[in-house]
Design a protein around this nucleic acid. Structure first.
Lengths: 329, 329
DNA sequence: GTGAAAGCGCTAACAT
DNA sequence: ATGTTAGCGCTTTCAC
């Protein structure tokens, strides 16, 4: 009953055991400064052996950084946070941050309140920010203090590196598939009009059908199931000879399929339906949804890592969109 | 160019502006100690007016608490973290923690490595833990230091309050619906055998069919789509007269529906299929899935809040399971 | 290259 | 009830 063993080891303990000062131990562990001196080796060995893990809080407080990465989702209303896609992004981000003892937060970023970004920058508990569904005005409002520790899953800017799906190529591939399988009256249900990264899909659609000598048939829609439902009905009302529908995302595609079924229209015999994103349920419906699959987890992990490490990254990293042929188209 | 205005206000600034010491300001803001003294009013007013927000890091470091809530998901393999259901829980937890400047982490808790819980307890960056899919041995391994800041979405214990769906009542309701709509050969595709909270569903199923004078037909399954697929095939092989399948969760139900379709069996005319959980896609399939809906977000938020506030909570809080009648049953 | 000392912003004993 | 004094565990000038 001489010494008491306190569970959480501190840097002090390691330093003492290694016979150096706290400062030296800190430097040795951080890996900065001088290269391999004997002390450094020793400190590392001791730390390892003792099972020492630095306290992320103290580290952050002293270093002036934060302990959480905020996933900020832009949108007109707070219900953008109810999106399973965002939960998935959050999950992948959390996984990437866990090793550093960093947690993640999920916040709504109102389209009309860019000032909120300033608050995120000023918040000392924020280590970095992963932006989703960004717009130009929002990007312009990213404060300087966030430089190097902000990334975008969506469009980027000079100050905000982007990690995103190659929507243009992916959408074009889907439309080409529709065309090459004999469809000649292809309509598109678009995403929300404020969302830049959905514009790329729409543009790709337009270019691809026009290249095939077909007239574009574009119908505005948001990201939801209901939008797909009403969109499909409207498409058939406006263009009764429509034989294919390309939806901006899977939820919209599901809505379209349900509406079509309700109208007595067979999918894919009468009308082909294709989605975008490949959510798990895409494989579970009858008919199973033809769509394009995207490495969401990899994208989120890359964005999170960039934010965490603050290492230099290219201004834009594109991830492949891969056609998944199932039954609906 | 006299004074420079530093963006992040500190408690010091507030204290000075209010003409009190830092300690008093701290107490006033925290709300502990003495009730409304004039000073307290003043401090709060000043803080409000200045737009002061305490730094969660400093607070946590000084107070000995952490800055992240860990969502620990038990399971045999790390892929339990790939579950959309868990992402949803994570999202709701994140939302609940955001106001406190607390982030969330997602971790796999191996069934056979309860020692990991000890590590979570010792980790000073951990504010609290939300356990998912807990088992008895795991609950027994929850260290004392976590007491009051741990909660379970699943079964609980004397030391770990539980927040969970009333699986028993919910499952019974589904089975009763199947029976009352004329089904007389009802099979169940169960969840993983190690998961206590799925036992409750299975028991409820057994009791309900037996009460109706029917023999139970229980088939083991895990939580996945593929399990539903193979399970349905096996059910029809073993009991060709099966006219209803109750699946432990929606993913399994989807698998069953796809398998049935593949077998040329009509849902629901030949065989009814019911799920459990009401994932978004349940409304999107053809036929749409009859299932039971659960307030996952509310449950996760309650668990997170309990962990954050460390306020006393009842040992178990049950949330309602509500039957959702769609087309499949 | 290394140690000493000064913080990061806050809370919690202690005094008063 | 309020102020004073120590820390929480780490990083980082600043001297040596």
């Amino acid at each position: 009953m001489g010494e008491e063993i306190r569970d959480p080891l501190t840097l002090e303990d390691v330093a003492r055991a290694a016979g150096v000062s706290r400062a030296t131990a800190s430097r040795a562990l951080i890996g900065s400064d001088t290269t391999s001196t004997p002390a450094r080796q020793r400190v590392r060995a001791v730390a390892e052996q003792l099972g020492y893990a630095p306290n992320p809080l103290a580290r952050a407080l002293a270093g002036g950084s934060g302990t959480r990465v905020v996933v900020a989702v832009a949108g007109p209303r707070p219900d953008v946070l109810e999106d399973p896609y965002m939960w998935r992004v959050l999950g992948a981000t959390a996984a990437a941050c866990d090793g550093a003892g960093v947690g993640v937060s999920l916040q709504w970023l109102p389209l009309d309140a860019p000032a909120l970004l300033g608050r995120l920058g000023a918040d000392r508990s924020v280590r970095g920010v992963v932006l989703c569904n960004t717009t130009e005005p929002l990007l312009a409002a990213v404060p300087d203090v966030l430089r190097g520790r902000v990334a975008s899953i969506g469009i980027g800017s000079a100050a905000v590196p982007s990690f995103d799906v190659d929507n243009a190529a992916g959408s074009a591939a889907v439309v080409r598939h529709l065309h090459s399988s004999g469809r000649r009256h292809i309509a598109m249900l678009t995403g929300p009009s404020w969302l830049p990264c959905s514009w790329r899909s729409v543009e790709a659609y337009r270019r691809t059908v026009e290249a095939a000598g077909l007239p574009p048939r574009i119908l505005p829609a948001d990201f939801g199931f209901e939008d797909g439902r009403s969109g499909a009905v409207e498409a058939l009302r406006r263009w009764p000879d429509t034989d294919a529908i390309f939806a901006i995302c899977d939820a919209v595609a599901f809505g379209a399929m349900v509406a079509l079924r309700g109208l007595g229209v067979d999918v894919p015999d009468d009308v082909a339906v294709a989605g975008f994103d490949d959510v798990p349920a895409a494989a579970w419906t009858g008919p199973a949804l033809t769509t394009a699959t995207h490495p969401v987890s990899r994208i989120a992990a890359a964005a999170a890592t960039a934010v965490l490490t603050e290492a230099p990254v290219p201004p834009a990293t594109w991830y492949p969109s891969e056609l998944v042929l199932r039954e609906s188209a």
